[in-house]
Amino acid sequence: MIHAVTATGIILILTGLWCMLTRKHIIRIIIGFSIIDTGIHIMIVSTGYIRNRTAPILDHAVGLQGAADKVVDPVPSALVLTAIVIGLAVTALMLSYAVKLYRRKRTLDINNYAELKW
């Protein structure tokens, strides 16, 4: 089950990578990047998972006492939360770049943005 999740994460990462490296459309590249991001998140969450435990949220269902034995490793979850925020920011910035680029040249083919080279 964990392996399945990890594997899903990895598959998503690879899919995203493939998408980034093969699609010419800038928006698709950004989507590819998002997919990678998601894959990483899934993968990280999976690394912290301990079988038969619950999410590391200290609410009524868990309670403060003995929480360490009831919840999965909270660190990866914390990491993922941060990573999601960062990923969001990066994706947003990428999209705004895409908008800017499109306004300049009316194209979103990445091959058309190679004026700087060598």
Binding site: I29, F33, L101, R104, Y113, E115
Partner: peptide
């Protein structure tokens, strides 16, 4: 335009 396309390339690589 140069700055935008450079920035975008930077983001792709930096993102990776």
């Amino acid at each position: 335009g140069q700055a935008f396309s450079a920035g975008f390339k930077y983001m792709i690589a930096g993102g990776l």
